[in-house]
Design a protein around this nucleic acid. Structure first.
Lengths: 177, 177
DNA sequence: TATTGTTATACTCTATAACTATA
DNA sequence: TATAGTTATAGAGTATAACAATA
């Protein structure tokens, strides 16, 4: 409720939005060329959630351009660092990634020498995942970039308290909806 | 800040998560089989945003199963109803849908007699979009389903005030991040 | 028999170039 | 020439079945 009212200025944002924007109130024959009314759409949870998610991912990619890490790759590195000694199935399923789709993702990280698969001695079917030294170094830099360039934008935009409340509500939705 | 603390119970959620869950604290040789630590991941905006968005879309699809409407289709019907007489480019770009990708989406809605393309008399290049009577009726039922089955879950989960604050913060991110 | 990692494959979304018909 | 709708196409992301190695 401390949230500053700025949602109502919703107008241009999608794709191009470089065509309308005329000075005269009316143009030619019949069709007005002004911005559309979003109406109930701007109150739809799914709609704003999706739009926000796309914006956040875009910003994440820009912030991480120098390290060439996608959100998915970053999440894998973070999870492997926090849970060393786990196998592919465990890491993948925790992130909601299906095992078949995790293979190419890991191939990429391994080819860049950021993490490594180690055949388990107990169960020779499974691959234990660990970060390489380079992987640890890159992740460390990635965290700093995310904190200073990415997450910091949220604090500027919403303020510390609102930022925490937002994360908490989103977690609740992710876990209980 | 009124948000009830429930984010910490983050454990099983992804994909299967039906394998771990053992009773004994330790199993065999070396690897423990307990839930992984999410660590900093649970504080990452992009991560929780994406997980929440997936959950919300899943729920939306379940709620709309009887009408067979996806979030994208629903948003098109909503926007066309609110802005009758607009052409494909205007509707698509407002929703962040690229024109080429909008064609098949519209073909679907038109084949189900929910909306219609009408060749504009002023500019014979453009197709004016309108809802059919059936489209209006279906949208009306869809709105009720969304309100009673889908959006209502948010109020149960977060409470009215938090729900409004959430939508507002997400809109702000979508528009200004 | 069941499970781990893997391959193959398919289906959806998204993105770009280029065509046509109009302007 | 420029724009609206369209086609074709390519790339991500996501989903399922099935195989080899191992348990």
């Amino acid at each position: 409720m401390t949230v500053s009212k700025t949602a109502e200025k919703s107008s241009e944002k999608a794709g191009d939005a470089t065509k309308g924007r005329k000075d005269a109130p009316e143009g030619h024959g019949q069709g007005s060329a002004e911005a559309l009314q979003l109406g109930e759409l701007s109150e739809q949870l799914g709609y704003v959630l999706k739009r926000a998610q796309l914006k956040v991912f875009e910003n994440f990619l820009r912030c991480m351009a120098s390290l060439q890490l996608t959100p998915a790759q970053f999440s894998v590195l973070l999870l492997v660092e926090k849970n060393p000694g786990r196998n592919q199935t465990e890491i993948a399923s925790t992130l909601g990634i299906l095992r078949p789709n995790f293979v190419a993702l890991l191939d990429n990280l391994e080819s860049r020498d950021l993490c490594a698969r180690i055949r388990s001695t107990n169960d020779r079917r499974s691959h234990i995942l660990v970060l390489t030294d380079k992987g640890k170094a890159v992740l460390s830099r990635a965290k700093k970039l995310v904190a200073t360039k990415h997450e910091s934008r949220l604090n500027e935009l919403l303020g510390q308290a609102n930022r925490e409340a937002l994360i908490e509500m989103l977690s609740k939705i992710a876990n209980e909806f």
